[in-house]
Design a binder for these strands. Structure first.
Lengths: 121, 121
DNA sequence: CAAATGCATCGACAAACGTCAATGTATCCA
DNA sequence: TGGATACATTGACGTTTGTCGATGCATTTG
């Protein structure tokens, strides 16, 4: 899957986050693909746990911190982190040779509200 | 995937819906699989649009009504409806030879809140 | 009962996903 | 400059997913 598929105009123009300002109206096919991409990023137990781990951590965590907590190899963890980064659920920041990850609170905060508008119309 | 995987004790004992009463604590691996199953059910554009269609409809819709709105065959639509039923996002009811589907408001209402507790800890 | 209708299920197939081992890249340090 | 460290990327593999055509089942109607 191409990364560009998950990058929306709003994000490229500097909008803080994810919500496509969905009114409680009909969801078009492009919008549906966008929503599905967000849900797909959460459709794996490991990513759920990584995200919860980052959400509950005061400090950003480096990749090796995360690898230590899972029975998976480092490439698998990096793969999941990339998926979470592509949909803007997490941010990453270099510190020397370390990459520190933290949740994108603006994005995760808007996500449940977007889900509500979508499903609870 | 077996249907039984998506049936949690609460649903079997008559609880209204989905939320596993997740405090804002560490998500265990079984809990993560449960959450992932819900998100997985929403990780497809067609299911997003089916769910939005049902959510915006006052009246329940039969399968042929839904089939008419998508460029997919009837087996594909039935397949997606089964996935949405397995996670309790929709209900189905027979009327003669027709199967009428409607959203499970209790479930879809709790889902965003569960997502918030999970991600916005 | 028999035919017709609406939907579910099955079998098959291509595409996507998750994982690992191996390798590449960037940064720090001696 | 060269080695070591932390992470990303690649290629391969088995599993899962989404779709279709064909078929089966339940219900209504003649």
């Amino acid at each position: 899957m191409a990364t560009a598929t998950l990058e929306r105009p709003e994000t490229r123009t500097g909008a803080p986050c994810c919500a496509p300002s969905a009114a409680s109206a009909t969801v078009t096919e492009p919008e549906a693909e966008e929503y599905a991409a967000w849900f797909k990023a959460l459709a794996d137990p490991t990513r759920i746990r990584i995200l919860n781990l980052l959400a509950r951590s005061e400090e950003p965590l480096c990749v090796c911190d995360i690898v230590d907590r899972f029975p998976l190899g480092q490439p698998a963890i990096s793969h999941h982190l990339k998926i979470l980064r592509d949909v803007r659920f997490v941010h990453s920041e270099r510190r020397g040779t370390f990459m520190y990850y933290r949740v994108n609170r603006a994005c995760l905060g808007e996500f449940p509200e977007a889900a509500r508008r979508l499903l609870n119309a």
